[in-house]
Design a protein around this nucleic acid. Sequence first.
DNA 1: GTGAAAGCGCTAACAC
DNA 2: GTGTTAGCGCTTTCAC
Lengths: 343, 343
Amino acid sequence: MSSTRATLIQVAERAGVSLASTSRALHGTGASKSMVERVRAAALELGYSVDAIGRSLRLKKTSQIAFAVADIGNPVYVEIMRGIHEVLAPHGYRVVVMSTGDTAASTAELMHSLHGGYVDGMIVIPLRTDDDLIAQIGRAPVPVVVIGRAMSDRGISSVSTDSAAGIGAAVQHVVSLGRRRIGFLNGPLDTTPGSSRQRGFDQAVSAKDFTAEQAGVEVAADFTVAAGITAARKLLDRPHRPDAIVAANDLLAIGAIHAARELGLSVPRDVAVTGMDDTELGQVFLPRLTSVSLGSAERGRAAARLMLGLADDADAPAQQISVGTELFARESTTLENLPETTE
Amino acid sequence: MSSTRATLIQVAERAGVSLASTSRALHGTGASKSMVERVRAAALELGYSVDAIGRSLRLKKTSQIAFAVADIGNPVYVEIMRGIHEVLAPHGYRVVVMSTGDTAASTAELMHSLHGGYVDGMIVIPLRTDDDLIAQIGRAPVPVVVIGRAMSDRGISSVSTDSAAGIGAAVQHVVSLGRRRIGFLNGPLDTTPGSSRQRGFDQAVSAKDFTAEQAGVEVAADFTVAAGITAARKLLDRPHRPDAIVAANDLLAIGAIHAARELGLSVPRDVAVTGMDDTELGQVFLPRLTSVSLGSAERGRAAARLMLGLADDADAPAQQISVGTELFARESTTLENLPETTE
DNA sequence: GTGAAAGCGCTAACAC
DNA sequence: GTGTTAGCGCTTTCAC
């Protein structure tokens, strides 16, 4: 462990050839067959591996991409990261995980750290955005891809999804199941997901073909199970109790199910609950959670592909990819497949 | 974005002083007050940030630590990562996430990549270990801390926990609750967690004060919910069905609950189920999962602290930290707090 | 096809 | 306290 690693120069000396030839031979660029053999042998003897830092300094390329989210604890981020990994790893990129914090200012600060030059680009999911952050992203010294909100009009490559429409689909789903009083459990309105999902709900309940009743909106303190429980209690405590709760993400939906259970309500019998993100967590939860997929892994892959494009040509015009949504109906809204058990 | 970043030389020229003084002034090491002022001003005007790569090359220090696990999808790894972050970030380290793959060979290969020199150390949780991997770790060019199994006798710093005792605690817990037929749902026996937990179960059921009955062991294909469901079905299909299932981790325990439900069994009434790792997932699951905590976040923090020590002195003797276990009794084994609901 | 040499951005001797 | 210079490990002109 304390043995020093061999350098190119040592390999060159060992092989009895020049430094330049050694580099070329190891790269396979314009070196004779015998040269390649000699150098390879020397490198092998010395256990040589190219030094990533020296290489980076020379090439001005680190082969690292940062992935920044507010909180890696949210399973949806983990799934997005898997998608990113999947695309980036085969291209030799490593992924550095960073935390944005949950304000636009702390995210902007993180963008600023990109000036350190330790990554070739950043894929970021800002929870909150403001003009300063957008400006900061525009000025970033490396390519940045934003996941969450369309920003190509601001010159920023981004991957978005129509979560508003997704909420609409969830509303429509529970209404089609015969639910009449639809409550909405959202996260903070000043966040990117919170605002768009609110818009989605407002549009859904004011559509002409919406035949049910808007039965209240509660805004949780953040997008977590704990906050969801607290907010859902209020939603369910109303005199005119909802018989369906559309939640802004899976974590809040699970909170809603907890709250319902505390009140002795059965899900989905008394209250149907839908989530969003279609995380693995929701899929294995009991009751299995009906959820609107926003294509997490696919968003990660799409962002990674945009990044690869930008890595090729940083001045390419900003692109935008939109990933479709899909509702997966499961036990938290439908009684089918719910085995008879008395607890 | 395409504007080139300012270098130290440019700052030096702008300030009209030497390169060395500029570096010193920015570092605050032995520079006059007026010098510091001039240089700071110049740096600010040019929007200078120190280049991480140049600095790394010179200092032979990347300020990056790799964290390698088989699958970031497992919530327990995410919690460990949070612990690592928490300790390392204040010291200016970034965390690079890597995947070990699930074999000892693929993990050894990853160790080999450390020769690239892009990180100052690695914290790794090998799923499977063999002599070659251990040798590889011993030969690694940077400090390595292993989480999962005591290895200080092999000269490797490690963070371990007594998961065997943890399984014992789980067995004892369900027995004390009056369960008579205890089944064990394990993951692959050739993995580090699988083997130690098997040992824990074997010891527990052969202890003289074990008054219940060993009601079968099933080994799932891996430590996932899906594999847990499949294996738990077999466990519950036996003529002499267990009235308690001790699972090797939370994911398997959740699989067991799914399997029980499929068979129309109530948890915990008909079958009590315990997990291990005490993940957030288990805590929010319904029924809330009884689980043995192996101090995930603390293991991450401990590993990070060991790493900081090794970063200071790579030749310090290998240390070993053991983190305690603690059983959290919740609804999957106890009927208390289980609201009356008829589903 | 091969070698010599420059230089990426930085810090730390070393002189003064 | 300040300046000059070497050199970390690498790739790539540029000559030959």
